[in-house]
Design a protein around this nucleic acid. Sequence first.
DNA 1: CGCTCTGTTGAGAAGACTCAATGCCTGTGG
DNA 2: CCACAGGCATTGAGTCTTCTCAACAGAGCG
Lengths: 245, 245
Amino acid sequence: MRRGEITDNALNMSSCETCVVRNTAICSGLDAAELGLLNNIGRQRRLEAGESLVWEGEDSVLVANVIDGMLKLSAGTEDGREQIVGVVYPSEFIGRPFGRSTDYSVTALTEAEVCVFARADFDRFAAEHPALEHKLLERTLTELDRTRKWMLLLSRKNAQEKVATFLLEMSERLAPADCEAAAGVQWLKVFDLPFSRQQIGDVLGLTIETVSRQMMALSRAGVIALPSRRAVEIVDRAALEDMAS
Amino acid sequence: MRRGEITDNALNMSSCETCVVRNTAICSGLDAAELGLLNNIGRQRRLEAGESLVWEGEDSVLVANVIDGMLKLSAGTEDGREQIVGVVYPSEFIGRPFGRSTDYSVTALTEAEVCVFARADFDRFAAEHPALEHKLLERTLTELDRTRKWMLLLSRKNAQEKVATFLLEMSERLAPADCEAAAGVQWLKVFDLPFSRQQIGDVLGLTIETVSRQMMALSRAGVIALPSRRAVEIVDRAALEDMAS
DNA sequence: CGCTCTGTTGAGAAGACTCAATGCCTGTGG
DNA sequence: CCACAGGCATTGAGTCTTCTCAACAGAGCG
């Protein structure tokens, strides 16, 4: 364990410079010297799919940046109903700086690579680096907008609209970032869902059976194709957009 | 009009110093000199109940601080379904700095007093005053947590739990801030709802009829009393908490 | 006193949920 | 390479909650 951590740090020493999200994460406003300091307080960590980083209700002692992979933020009622309240993608930020409590769990959906900080260390660093706080503020504002938009889906859309909207969002957010270079490709025609049917249900506020029925209905209608369990092909995007309302 | 604005500014000149939310709003980190500068770019504005400050889809040119009253943030689908995605209370912040688009409308629920800034002016000021950005970041993080918690309610709670949760939240958030002084009173036993039944439905993702039926059921069960159209008395708080799940 | 707006009540329909059974990949071990 | 177990997904039948549509009641106002 000790051994492993030292190795992680050693790897980490060189990794801020070479980090794949170096120019898109909140670190992008920092110069080389600042980056060195940040490097000292953070460390990289690998998560298996299904592994949790933070648990609901636990004291929030960690914050993190996602380097690779996807994670879910989930909240639940006492009686076991769960809702995924957010999905975190590479270069995005996880955690609640400047605060104690966490109201949700953070769990890896795929194998993931994150850059972890002790909250106290991060808070101190952020307080001294306004550029970083500014980036974080912009991100948080964007995330708030996105979350509010999702509220409309949860409360006012029916099962068909929810599933259609979800598939469209996935086809856009799973598109690799460098597609901007290969301009024109803003979304994927074929992709693998990083979610099980159960998890899709947890995102959309539906049961697993309803998700399954809606996906099958879309498939039967020729709007999408389902070549394998996790794979989706968007056959008629215009129709899917209509159904998303 | 010119006349009016000058008068507003004149009033405003004295009002930052005497502002009732001076110590709780994002301005609280600023010293007298900074406050003077902020004073120059902002102006106070009074809104009637029902009056809108920003419209959905419109370019976001304004940001504001709420001095008094309550406002709603609402989003809608093309076919007219509406969802209230947030409620803003005194000392809270409205708007999307550092960004173009607005995805929701801002409308006064009660008569309200707000301190308005042109977004460009505010952005510039914020960039030069990290303390203000820090306050704004904390607020935005808190709002994001609150919004995520509301998602759980929208997607996983039934009508009874939704209405019970709503009434409890109202009894807490409508409690005047100075109750901290009169320690122990964290919530109100009797209060006037700032929402119509329709608006409660829009907050909870329910129809007006369902809201009405649930309120009547709670009343019949002796958990609450409804002395008038807008008034609510919490008779058995423990029972109401149980029902909120 | 009547008008309008908001809220309440009722009956029926629709959508999603629950429970239960079946089918189909995937990975493991013979 | 095949057989089998376990997990995930699909399908079906029936129920329940909420919505929809429609009528009515009551407060507030001119």
